[in-house]
């Protein structure tokens, strides 16, 4: 949380001036949206008559009523303590989203018949590709970071070229370059290894910077103490420096994993049956793409929320465990 001042004024949304401005602005916006031929206009029929013919008056009335409802809602939420504000606003936004999805006239039966395969095949593939990639990327990042901190010009040049190149190209392009380009060199690489390789190299490049910063943050005295006891470079790195750098490296690496989970959807273009691929294809025969896309979207979202929860736990662990 930001710095919380101990002097607290009136709640902003309870000032009459603010309330008035909110009502006016919301009314204008809702009116401009022209909502009289939607379900809202239908509800207002007793007041505005035939919605389609109500014109500006209809739009204005609908807009005004919606604005009043919205502002009352905001004012009421303003009375709640922080914790409940969070819960109420979350639930309301979630309800809005579900209404949005519901408006597509989704066939739940269809989703139910497909979701198990989406999880066992799609989520499983997405997760294992991401997990393998993040582990390999961590190794690449360790070597990249060491090379970038090295006094060896050759190593530094390769590492900086590598990070520059792979951070400079879109991941999708890297994927194509690897999948279509490697065979030109005589290595025919399958779709899954190509996807893992692309994700590894791309994220390895980003994580090189994370590892570099982590290693660099360790006091020079640790090196001196280790070296003065006769520890070699590798031993010092492995047993002294990296263990201390981990608390700084792991939280941002967790974030990278969450990002990778979503970026792994790109490997669907080379025909890997992960979540995104199934989302695009499973609804094909029955022309029910929205069902599959929304299902996959919700699955991605849930996965991300679970991972973010684990991530916050890891961060807290390292914050409290830093001696």
């Amino acid at each position: 949380m930001l710095f919380a001042d101990t002097v607290v004024g009136d709640t902003g949304v309870h000032k009459p001036k603010v309330i008035l401005i909110m009502v006016v602005v919301a009314t204008v916006i809702f009116t401009l949206l022209g909502l009289n031929d939607t379900i809202f206009g239908e509800i207002m029929r007793p007041v505005i008559g035939e919605p389609k013919e109500s014109g500006l008056f209809g739009n204005l009335s609908v807009g005004f009523v919606l604005a009043i409802i919205l502002v009352i809602n905001i004012v009421l939420i303003g009375f709640l303590p922080f914790r409940y504000q969070v819960i109420v606003v979350w639930l309301q936004l979630l309800a809005l989203f579900l209404t949005f999805f519901y408006s597509f006239d989704l066939k739940i039966e269809f989703i139910r018949s497909k979701i198990w395969f989406m999880i066992t095949q799609g989520v499983f593939t997405t997760l294992y590709i991401s997990a393998i990639s993040i582990i390999l990327a961590s190794f690449v990042a360790i070597f990249g970071a060491i090379a970038k901190l090295s006094s060896n010009g050759f190593a530094f040049a390769i590492a900086s070229f590598y990070t520059s190149f792979f951070r400079g190209l879109p991941l999708l392009m890297q994927l194509y370059l690897i999948y279509l380009g490697m065979p030109q060199l005589g290595y025919v690489i399958d779709a899954v290894p190509a996807g893992i390789l692309a994700l590894t190299l791309c994220y390895g490049a980003y994580m090189t910077e994370i590892f570099r910063a982590g290693i660099q943050s360790i006091n020079k005295g640790q090196w001196e103490a280790s070296r003065s006891m006769g520890f070699g470079f590798g031993l010092t790195m492995r047993r002294i420096i990296l263990p201390q750098a981990m608390p700084l490296i792991i939280p941002p690496t967790g974030n990278q994993f969450i990002a990778m989970l979503k970026d792994s959807s790109l490997v669907s273009v080379i025909g890997v049956w992960e979540l995104m691929f199934l989302a695009r294809t499973m609804g094909n025969k029955d022309f029910r793409h929205m069902e599959m896309l929304i299902t996959a979207a919700l699955i991605y979202w849930c996965l991300t929320m679970v991972l973010e929860f684990i991530q916050s736990r890891i961060e807290r662990h390292y914050r409290t465990a830093s001696h």
């Binding site: 103490a225 280790s226 003065s228 006769g230």
Partner: peptide
């Protein structure tokens, strides 16, 4: 170095 012990101003414990 193994045979030369060194104590630093800032301790440098692990």
């Amino acid at each position: 170095r193994m045979d030369v012990g060194m104590v630093f101003q800032h301790f440098n414990l692990f």
